[in-house]
Design a protein around this nucleic acid. Sequence first.
DNA 1: GTCATGTCGTTGACGTGTCAATCATGCGCC
DNA 2: GGCGCATGATTGACACGTCAACGACATGAC
Lengths: 159, 159
Amino acid sequence: MTHSTRQGRRRSPTPDELRAWRGYIETARALDARLTSRLQKESGLSTGDYTVLLALSEADGRRLRSSELADAVGWERSRLSHHLRRMEDRGLVRREECAVDYRGAWVVLTDDGAHAFRSASVPHLRAVRELFVEALDPDQLDQVAALTAALRDRLDASR
Amino acid sequence: MTHSTRQGRRRSPTPDELRAWRGYIETARALDARLTSRLQKESGLSTGDYTVLLALSEADGRRLRSSELADAVGWERSRLSHHLRRMEDRGLVRREECAVDYRGAWVVLTDDGAHAFRSASVPHLRAVRELFVEALDPDQLDQVAALTAALRDRLDASR
DNA sequence: GTCATGTCGTTGACGTGTCAATCATGCGCC
DNA sequence: GGCGCATGATTGACACGTCAACGACATGAC
């Protein structure tokens, strides 16, 4: 497929550029929704649950301080706090007092949480492979990596 | 950048493949969040509002049936209904009875809605250009189009 | 010690998204 | 006309995300 000639810097995106943009963002959203739905059906977990459980599984003693966990998954504290409350209600994690700094708290992976993560992991990775990895050829996978790096650079540069 | 050799079909994604996946989905989410935040600050609209207003602006008589609008923006009816209630509360759209089919309803763009859309449009398109179009070179824009088409095909095929 | 200030984490309010249930109307069929 | 079913749209319940405000503790200056 070819592209329109580029316009001046002040112009609005061309129709082709807008199509690329819409395709990009809508496909990502659709993929995300599908993965979320499969994970939910197969394991009763959300992608947020999965992300948190993965980080805790890899942590020393299967526990992290709340702020460490927030950094590990790249979430805001408030978002994490809300999510942990829901996960704690379902018995996936547990909060414990932190004797070193009484402002803080440990987030501990429970046995139920560890089990849920193990059960979810294989079908989830299979879904990632089926819907993303296998949809692209090796060159395209490299292109994705380059593209996302470029987009992320621009995003970071303009923050 | 090079990629690992591909593994058998049953294997989990390789670390490189997982990195590509995470990069893809997280970059898309970050971009989406940034665009949403800019649109909100500059115009007081959400991306959902913008999508709805765009579809209505282009419609004959600046009005669409609820179901036509749902198709135009690719949303579930329920989602659209919730969103329209909030937009109606803010005076951006109005619902009218449909005399042809009393089950249905017209969704009508109000003058306030049209004005909000016009004000939002230029800064929003500028943001898309700055954060997406200009971050990529022309080849990469073509690659995005091809990539998303491949991903979407796979998504549709496995539905 | 105490006061100001910063950090850790939670909470409430609210916008957003999904799912299942519901309600009313249209429509074909007898 | 009346019955059954499909369709248009809304609703309620709940999960999720952001923002701003807050309470509790830590820390350094004095």
